[in-house]
Design a protein around this nucleic acid. Structure first.
Length: 603
RNA sequence: GGGCCCGUAGCGCAGCCUGGAUAGCGCGACACUCUCCUAAGGUGAAGGUCGAGGGUUCAAAUCCCUCCGGGCCCGCCA
């Protein structure tokens, strides 16, 4: 809506100055507090042709502006022209949001998009670091979907890693008994075995032997590995579910190797994208030559197939990327695995499953992976280009993020520094803290449910409000903050709005009304939502949404404190303000939905 | 050797893409504020050489260059 206003204003300015409307549009921005509603800095540009100072120009231009039903007045202030919008404009913002409801702010993109996240090894619980990835991927998927895209949320399961073999070794050597939540048990086992392996060559050999049998794809060990893997993933997805993270399909590495790997590599060979080294230190390997594009490196070659014939991580990921873009004939079989919190099924690839349409064949592929993998991700995009897939190379997005750190050091899966910092424990601790703040006469169960919702909201917001390239140093008090710039603050604002709506016994509808400053601020902010969503979608940055809804709620809280709704003086005022509350609730719940912050009914 | 990211108030961040009005916010610390839609709220005051230096510009936190501090990458690991 603000975009519409800007558009109208740019036409007026263009008429007054003779400058093109596009240029005039660029000079417009939402004005600072107390300086009108929208400001233009056109005078800095127009003053040159007018041969006068920007301050003089502003006065000249303001005097020449035609009137418009949305403009109450246009006031030159120094070199700026400050536009004060009319009550009819504010009224229209409100009406529009009420009419469009949940659809308000939705975009018209229509791409087929894959978001891959978080690809946690299936032998340990999610810790705080994995959580950042999962939340980022989940939120970006939400945002793109809201922008109109058709989004597939995929997860990559590395079921053939040494890590799984190590956990399996532990399983086989401990009477095969899993105690507690499977992912936690396997993680602890993995840490033990990893340190044993360092000291004991026999253990190392045995674990490697297990891996070999897993890779063969058949036999008891392979079957046990698959079973154990699935059990772990189920446990991890319990965590995901508690955090409101949903997926559509899990793609297992073993299935990539079985179904599409050969074809993918053949394609690379046929197109001379990879070369077989017959001498030198990479003798026997298939490598990608990166000399031209990525110069300055000591060794500008990237190995995709080792001399022993096995694929490197980048090799597998390369082929997977081809599949994501629908460049391979090979397909996976799927079976139903779990259900998302929203009831939709989660599928997993498997040998015995059935074909299923709807996955892959994307035009935009977003891989949510830590910054440290920038280089291999660049290689993958580069190779897409070598195959002649220029568009796909451009649309191979590495959505990178800095890691979550402990104050002392980085997380290490192998060393087990994550112990005590799993996503499950974080949620629990948050729930405990929130529980202390829940007042009101709720049943105990209800209280716990509220506290859990508050905790999940606090954590999701705390992770998502920070730009992904910032290192996230984990501190309990900051992540679980319940006040100020926090998830619970937003939940609270939403709950308060809903309470007003519940208690109202009349219909919300904007009436002829002289909007006060608090009301204008609120409507102006509400009017920005579509632009904000577009920006966040284009940049794939959820913190833009976080910033916005925090600011929006700030403005609402002020309105809430100063302007009575249910017992406002006149009937017109009551109806108009209630309409604003409804509009706010719509936009805030949309915004919270994009971040995946759940909203309690009461708190 | 080459490349990427971060540096804004005591602490944690937004703003940088797309340059413009006295640089915003939260936490912490200070002072107010619940006979009235939930005080997980609101208000006020305090706190900043935007890492340093140069350049471009009428105008630089924002663009360019150099340097400093911190982190990461350039594996037949994942």
């Amino acid at each position: 809506m603000i975009a519409n206003a800007k558009h109208q204003l740019s036409k007026l300015i263009s008429l007054a100055t003779g400058e093109p409307t596009e240029l005039c549009l660029k000079t417009l921005e939402v004005a600072e507090e107390g300086k009108g509603d929208i400001a233009s800095k056109i005078s800095f540009i127009a003053s040159k042709k007018m041969k006068m100072s920007p301050v003089q120009a502003a006065q000249e231009i303001a005097a020449k502006l035609e009137s418009h039903e949305w403009v109450k007045k246009a006031e030159p202030t120094g070199p700026y022209i400050n536009f004060f919008l009319s009550d009819s404009f504010f009224s229209e913002v409100c009406t529009k949001i009420l009419n469009e409801g949940k659809a308000y702010g939705r975009g018209g993109n229509n791409r087929r998009v894959i978001v891959e996240s978080p690809a946690v090894n299936p032998n340990k619980p999610w810790h705080i670091g994995h959580l950042r990835n999962a939340l980022l991927g989940n939120s970006v998927a939400n945002i793109l979907e809201f922008g109109g895209d058709e989004v597939q949320r995929l997860d990559y399961i590395d079921d053939l890693g040494l890590q799984v073999a190590q956990s399996l070794w532990g399983y086989l050597n401990s009477e095969g008994k899993i105690e507690g939540k499977a992912d936690h048990w396997m993680g602890a086992e993995y840490v033990k075995v990893a340190s044993k392996m360092e000291q004991d060559a026999i253990v190392k050999k045995e674990a490697e032997g297990i891996l070999k049998q897993m890779e063969s794809g058949s036999g008891d060990v392979a079957e046990q590995a698959r079973k154990l893997t699935e059990e772990c993933v189920r446990a991890q997805y319990e965590t995901a579910s508690n955090y409101g993270v949903s997926h559509d399909a899990l793609i297992c590495e073993s299935d990539i190797l079985r179904e599409v790997f050969k074809e993918g590599m053949q394609k690379l060979k046929d197109n001379n994208a990879v070369h077989h080294e017959t001498s030198g230190k990479n003798e026997g390997c298939w490598v990608v030559k990166l000399g031209g594009k990525m110069s300055g490196m000591e060794d500008p070659d990237k190995i995709l197939i080792r001399s022993n014939g096995t694929a490197t991580y980048t090799g597998k990921d390369m082929v997977f990327q081809l599949w994501k873009f629908g460049k391979l004939n090979g397909e996976f079989n799927y079976e139903k695995f779990l259900s998302n919190p929203n009831g939709k099924s989660i599928y997993i690839t498997s040998k015995e499953g059935k074909r299923k349409d709807g996955f892959g064949k994307a035009e935009l592929v977003i891989n949510v992976i830590g910054v440290e993998q920038k280089y291999p991700q660049e290689v993958i995009a580069h190779v897409m280009g070598l195959l002649g897939f220029e568009e796909e190379a451009k649309n191979s997005i590495h959505l990178s993020y800095e890691h979550a750190w402990l104050p002392e050091a980085k997380f290490s899966g192998r060393k087990g520094t994550w112990l005590g910092h799993t996503a499950d424990e974080l949620l629990e601790e948050g729930q405990k803290r929130a529980l202390e703040k829940v007042k009101g006469d709720f049943e105990d169960d209800e209280k716990k449910e509220i506290a859990k919702t508050v905790s999940a909201g606090a954590i999701r917001y705390a992770f998502l409000k920070i730009a992904p390239e910032k290192k996230l140093i984990f501190k309990w008090d900051e992540v679980l903050s319940l006040e100020g710039d926090s998830g619970p603050y937003l939940q609270y604002a939403c709950v308060r709005a809903r309470r007003i709506m519940e208690k109202a016994n009349f219909e919300p509808s904007p009436q002829p009304h002289a909007f006060n400053d608090d009301e204008k601020r609120l409507l102006k902010e509400l009017g920005r939502f579509p632009e904000v969503v577009q920006d966040a979608s284009r940049k794939m940055r959820p913190h833009i949404i976080a910033d916005y809804i925090y600011n929006l709620s700030n403005v609402f809280s002020r309105f809430y404190t100063n302007s009575r709704v249910l017992n406002a003086e006149t009937q017109e005022e009551r109806k108009t303000r209630l309409a604003m509350v409804v509009a706010f609730e719509k936009v805030l719940s949309s915004g919270l939905g994009l971040l995946g912050v759940p909203i309690p009914n009461r708190m």
